[in-house]
Design a protein around this nucleic acid. Structure first.
Lengths: 195, 195
DNA sequence: ACCTGAACACCGTTCAAGT
DNA sequence: ACCTGAACACCGTTCAAGT
């Protein structure tokens, strides 16, 4: 006779997420997760291949949330939308906090979900800098955003100045730089070509 | 009688570094390190408080190297120097590869070495955008660089375009954006202020 | 002073046995 | 079908004992 299931994939993911949010990924053990859902550790292997698969499930959930967060920032004027997405991304990262590193943990498998999450950013850049430059522009912007929030969540900004101001300054600068580089309208103020 | 030391701090750090370079930080065990230097694992505790202290020692070595790499890029024209530092940073990160995450792993302790490593970048930005803006400018640039190399080392750039081109595009864009934002000479091309 | 083996409390994971 | 206890091969770390 089949005993009723004591837990579920969703419950396990939620428990793992809560533990990571509180103590970080490194501190997550399957035994803790199992205890949190009222089961013994080996039972988790009924629903997940291994620890990595459980982390991948958390990762997927976060990516889906990110997609929603960015999609909500599609405004009429694309430059405004871009800035709004940047700020929304940072706010999302702050909300995740110790969960944030999981958002980027590429388990080796390239995920279509990751591309989908960034789709609103890509289309906004398409209209703003043109298809020819939207990919490098997107990479520049995401690199800045990922780098900035990683550094602030790691407390890597050690000097005194306001991190808030630095983000506003940086986001504005990156958007300006990326827009200026997309069109060949005006020559760059300073030539930084290889020598 | 004191038996002669079988190993040394430097040898242990080198062994740890080699293992991390080959298999990543997560795969580093003290037992492997001990075996590599011809000793039993508990002996490592004679020279390092714990695993974290060993990782911190590797981290310090990497930071010192980074300082040298950036200092070597101080050129006559500051905008060129900035671009050169950006490219040198990326090349250094590629050389480190699986060791790179350790460069940023803030063990909680704010290190003066980290500030020293970035000093050449800071002084270059001082002359380029002025003291009033050099701190946010430095944060913007380091965020971009750290984010970009993290993403490429993680294989997070999934789309088809050239990552090389994206870096050149991004570095130029960020430098241009940061310079344009430093002086209040000309108004930004697009207003991205909060709404 | 330095190194060792034995031990402790943990891991992730497998698997036969229960219901 | 789902869950469990026991077991395996690992961890990091401590410590008494050797030289």
């Amino acid at each position: 006779m089949a005993p009723p299931a004591k837990t579920s994939r969703a419950e396990i993911v939620a428990a793992a997420r809560a533990i990571i949010a509180e103590r970080g990924v490194a501190a997550l053990s399957l035994q803790q997760v199992a205890a949190a859902v009222g089961v013994q550790a080996p039972s988790l292997y009924k629903r997940f291949d291994d620890r990595a698969a459980l982390l991948a499930a958390v990762h997927d959930a976060l990516l889906e949330e990110l997609a929603g967060v960015l999609a909500a920032q599609t405004l009429a004027r694309p430059a405004q939308a871009l800035a709004a997405m940047g700020r929304a991304y940072r706010a999302f990262a702050h909300r995740l906090d110790r969960l944030y590193p999981l958002l980027f943990a590429s388990g080796g498998t390239p995920s279509p979900a990751a591309l989908a999450a960034l789709a609103p950013l890509m289309t906004t850049l398409d209209t703003l800098v043109g298809r020819a430059h939207s990919l490098p522009a997107a990479r520049t912007l995401t690199a800045f955003l990922h780098g900035f929030v990683t550094m602030e969540l790691n407390a890597s900004f050690q000097m005194a100045g306001s991190v808030e101001d630095a983000f506003d300054f940086g986001l504005t600068a990156v958007i300006r730089g990326v827009i200026g580089g997309g069109a060949d309208a005006d020559a760059p103020a300073v030539d930084v070509a290889r020598e």
